[in-house]
């Protein structure tokens, strides 16, 4: 298996791509940050470890990055799902990017903590894409990863057990913490709208204030906009400075998409999207 630096360097020296988006170590051993290498010698700083938390697919739709021309991007399996979804939704073209997939051995929940069964990110526990489905090169080797308890699923079951009113109160309390910094939206690879609905003012659909009503509508509508689209990278929740458990809604939606429509977001770049297609056999018993 090739190593990341060799692959990235070859792509840059051969001129196949103008830039490679990857990770570099930052501050301490338990932290990395995204980095865009434009010169072959830049890739010497690249690392692959258990602290490569960012989903770099978010950069593919950014104006500041797309003007660099053809880019390569390092992708974990979950990140590659986001790239697949972006291709499915016609936001990027497969031929414009080179995906350097990595055999992923799991990442931590956050920076500055040890990688172990307690701190392994929830999304890694039952991961079925440790080797990315979509990639042009593949680096690294699979190894055993710690097992741990899927706490988020436990939380989802807990919320499901509540009645409608309790559920409402629960989310209202959580959303009240929101300060409307939109880090969730900006960190999300699938929140690529040129103008977000919350920024639209004629008419204003969502109040921009960080008040009970403004916060509830924002967080709920963002979840709806990701229904059947969220690939579960959990970057929104990690980006949230107020620790709102955003993944509860997103993951529940993904579970519904799977159960009701047998749809997994970001698995097939040629498949029609869930909300952009229909089938006569689709379940419609939810229409009352």
């Amino acid at each position: 298996m090739d190593d990341i630096k060799t692959v990235a360097k070859e792509l840059l020296t051969s001129g196949k791509v103008n830039a490679v988006i990857g990770y570099i170590r930052y501050g301490n051993d338990k932290r990395t940050k995204p980095f865009i290498a434009q010169k072959p010698e830049d890739v010497d700083k690249f690392v692959i470890n258990n602290f490569i938390l960012n989903n770099l697919a978010v950069y593919l739709t950014r104006k500041e990055v797309s003007k660099l021309g053809k880019v390569a991007v390092i992708a974990k399996g979950c990140d590659a799902k986001a790239i697949t979804a972006l291709i499915q939704e016609n936001q990027i073209k497969k031929e414009d990017i080179h995906v350097i997939g990595i055999n992923c051995n799991g990442v931590t929940k956050d920076f500055d903590i040890d990688f172990n069964s307690e701190n392994i990110a929830g999304k890694c526990l039952n991961c079925d894409v440790r080797t990315p489905k979509l990639c042009d090169s593949l680096v690294g080797a699979l190894a055993d990863i710690p097992s741990g308890e899927d706490l988020k699923l436990k939380m989802i079951r807990g919320v499901e057990a509540k009645n409608a009113e309790e559920r409402w109160d629960y989310f209202e309390d959580e959303f009240n913490k929101c300060i409307k910094c939109y880090a969730c939206r900006q960190a999300c690879p699938l929140c690529y709208c040129e103008q977000c609905i919350v920024d639209k003012s004629i008419p204003r659909w969502i109040e921009s204030s960080a008040t009970k009503r403004g916060n509830f509508s924002w967080n709920l509508i963002r979840a709806f906009h990701l229904a059947g689209r969220c690939i579960g990278c959990n970057e929104c929740e990690r980006a949230c400075p107020m620790d709102i458990p955003l993944s509860l809604l997103n993951r529940k939606m993904a579970m519904i998409a799977k159960d009701e429509f047998n749809y997994d977001a970001g698995t097939d770049m040629n498949a029609p999207t869930l909300v952009g297609s229909y089938d006569l056999k689709d379940n419609e018993d939810f229409i009352e």
Partner: peptide
């Protein structure tokens, strides 16, 4: 720096 920044306001709000 501009090409790395995602353009949220986490920095400003905290």
């Amino acid at each position: 720096i501009g090409k790395m920044c995602l353009g949220c306001a986490q920095c400003a709000f905290v």
